[in-house]
Structure formats: C-alpha cells, structure tokens
Design a binder for these strands. Sequence first.
DNA 1: CCTTAACTTCACAAATTTCTGAAAGAAGCG
DNA 2: CGCTTCTTTCAGAAATTTGTGAAGTTAAGG
Lengths: 162, 162
Amino acid sequence: MTESSTERDPESVSRFVEHFAAQLVEAGMPRMPSRVFGALLASDTGTLTSAELGEQLRISPAAVSGAVRYLAQVHMVSREREPGSRRERYRVHSDQWYEALTNREAIIKRWEDALRDGVASLGADTPAGRRLAETLAFFEFIERDVAEMMERWRAYREERFG
Amino acid sequence: MTESSTERDPESVSRFVEHFAAQLVEAGMPRMPSRVFGALLASDTGTLTSAELGEQLRISPAAVSGAVRYLAQVHMVSREREPGSRRERYRVHSDQWYEALTNREAIIKRWEDALRDGVASLGADTPAGRRLAETLAFFEFIERDVAEMMERWRAYREERFG
DNA sequence: CCTTAACTTCACAAATTTCTGAAAGAAGCG
DNA sequence: CGCTTCTTTCAGAAATTTGTGAAGTTAAGG
C-alpha cells in the first residue's frame, strides 16, 4: 500500500481518463470532448473548473471551451457559475448523462422524418417504399420502448444504489 | 400523375438517398458508407451491384469498395456473389441491419472494461469510484435489456408485417 | 468606473480523413 | 490457359477537422 485508501495517483487517473476517452472516440465522439468528459467522470466531486481541466489534460483554454460547448449541447455536462467568482464549473450529473446517451431522440426523429419522406416519394406500394416503412416502424417502436427501459433502469438503480 | 404507380423517378430517389445519408453522417457514420447504404435501402430489390452504385452515386469503384467494406464490417449489408458472374452484389436485409444498429455490443463491452479498470484503480470506496461503478451498472443493465427489447420488436413486427 | 480575471471567439496551422486514378489481383469464359 | 471483366489495393491530392495563440467579451472587485 502506498498511501491512504483515498489516494488519487494522478498517473492512474490519467490512465483511466485516456483509456475511457479512447473508447468514446471509437464510438464516434470527438477527441477533446471525450477526454474532458473522462476527466469529469473520474474527478472526486464530479465537477472541475476550466483551469483544472486545462492543466490536467494539457490543453489550451480554447480547447476546453470547445469541448465543453459540445458536451453541454448534448447534455452530458452542465455548467455552473460559482457564485461570487468568474470561475465556471462543469459538472457531470451521475444520472443526467446516460439519460443523454439514450437521448439520441433528436437524431432518431430526423431519421424518421427522412424515412417518412422516402415512403411518400417512392410510394408506399413499392418494394422500396415498404422497406422504408418497416424501418420507420422499427424506429417508432424503439423510441417508445427505450422510454420504458429507462423507467426500469431508474427502479433498478433506486434499489441497488439508493 | 406522371407515370405508372411504380415509377422510380431517379431524382426523387436521389433526393431521398442524399437526405437520409446526411442524417446518418450526422449520427457519426462516414459519408460514403452512408450514401451507399441509402441507395441500397431505396432500391427496389434491396440489392445493387458495385457498378450500379458507382453510377448512381457518381463515385469511383474504389469508393464503392471502401464503403462496402465498412458496411459489411458493421453488418449493415452482406455481400453476395452472383453465381456465374464476377459481379458482386450488395444486399441490405431488411431486418439484419437494425439488429446491427442495436449491436453496439462490442463497443459497450469495451466501455464496461474501461470502467471496471477505473473502479479498480481509483478504488471502489472513493467518490469517483462509486460514480464509475454506477455507470458500469447502467451499461450492464442496458445490455441485458436491449436484448429483450429486440425480442419484443420481432414479435411486434411479426404481427404487423407478417 | 477602471482593472483584472476568466472564458469565448476567430483565423490560421497542423494533422487526419476521404476520395480518386492507376495498377495489381481474382475469376468466369472461350 | 490466356483473355476479359470486375473488384481491390495503394499512393497521393484534396478536403475536412482539430487545436492553438491572440484578440475580444463579460463580469467581479476595488
């Protein structure tokens, strides 16, 4: 054992952050947002200031700003003004963010719109039209069902984590 | 009315293809695979040859090749050898592909691995460790539940589309 | 108000990704 | 078994994306 049980070896933290971020990148998220998000997730309080992020990740204030804008836009972090200071703090709400993950809602809606257009313009009575219609039905189904799944998750979480 | 009810105005088809592909791109899929996939989805038989794809989308054989390799890798299309010909045909199985969509399984598994490492190295008894553990629990939950959701979809589909 | 700390925006440089043409590689068909 | 047709691979050009420094904006604190 090296130190107290709540040590935070910066090296270990960094290793996790970079590794986890790499997975997010692989899934399609831009690099800086992924790293910033990883750092927040691995922080003790779940909040970090812009300066802390910049220092920990070795990136410029501009990069932090851009990453945070992205993350806020997809609701994976929220910004808080520290009262009586010009410091901004960024927070990952434990639950907020995976709600966001399943909230591809906006994207799905647009897929649905595109598919509806397609069915209309290709003709509902054509083979292609039918294929599009079935795909559309799938998304509509998913949309309804994911909501229920999140309900189940919240119940499960309540029970297991309180 | 311009022609028969099963007309396939290339202009309309193209408009759909490009519009739908744009949505896929927005969701993180590379451009060419998105366009190729759109074209297949909007085709009458659900299959197209490399040459047809190249002509319809105005792209080089090389681009078709690359796009198809990508799509096959993520199981969104399958390749078929047309017997007695050196033509390859690419097919989108109506159901195969959205199964693939929910099959982020490999990706989720790796997230889980990264999170497990994180819990171990940050300590399960630290605030950050607990946050990671809960996130991990979420993914494990999702994984189980999505499988059930697909079951429900298949049942629903059966009933509605036969 | 003026100063100063903190964040954001902008223009550009760097790195990466994407697509093409050309050449090489399979596979039917005579 | 060689010819021909189709597909893949490869190297490089073009386009896009990403991150930085520097200037600009906002708001706290004297």
